[in-house]
Amino acid sequence: MYESYTRQSLPSKEYRELLGTAICVFNSNNAFIIENILMCDNNESWYKLMDKTCMPLQEKIKNIIFKDSNNKIYDQFKKICEMRNRIVHSFQCTYKNEQILATKDKQNKQFYITKEYLLDFIKKNEQLSDMLHNFRGF
Rank of each mutant, 00 (worst) to 15 (best):
M1E: 09
M1W: 10
Y2V: 11
E3C: 06
T6Q: 04
Q8A: 11
Q8V: 13
S12W: 08
Y15T: 03
E17R: 13
L18P: 02
L19Y: 06
T21H: 11
C24S: 15
V25N: 01
F26C: 05
F26H: 00
N29L: 10
N30F: 14
A31S: 15
A31F: 13
F32I: 06
N36H: 08
L38T: 03
L38S: 00
C40D: 11
D41P: 06
D41T: 01
D41M: 10
N42D: 13
N42V: 07
S45Y: 01
Y47A: 07
Y47R: 07
K52E: 09
C54T: 06
P56N: 06
P56G: 04
L57Y: 04
L57R: 04
Q58H: 09
Q58M: 15
N63T: 15
N63A: 15
N63G: 10
I64S: 02
F66L: 09
F66G: 04
F66P: 03
K67W: 15
S69G: 06
Y74R: 05
Y74W: 12
D75R: 10
Q76N: 13
K79I: 04
K79G: 00
C81R: 05
C81T: 05
R84A: 02
N85C: 08
I87S: 03
V88E: 06
H89I: 06
C93S: 08
K96A: 12
N97E: 11
N97F: 10
L101W: 00
T103G: 02
Q107R: 14
N108M: 11
N108E: 12
N108L: 11
K109H: 13
Q110C: 10
F111N: 06
Y112P: 02
I113M: 05
T114F: 04
T114C: 02
E116W: 09
Y117I: 03
Y117A: 02
L118K: 01
F121K: 01
I122K: 00
E126F: 12
L128T: 03
M131Y: 07
L132T: 02
H133Q: 12
H133M: 15
R136L: 07
R136H: 12
R136Y: 14
F138V: 03
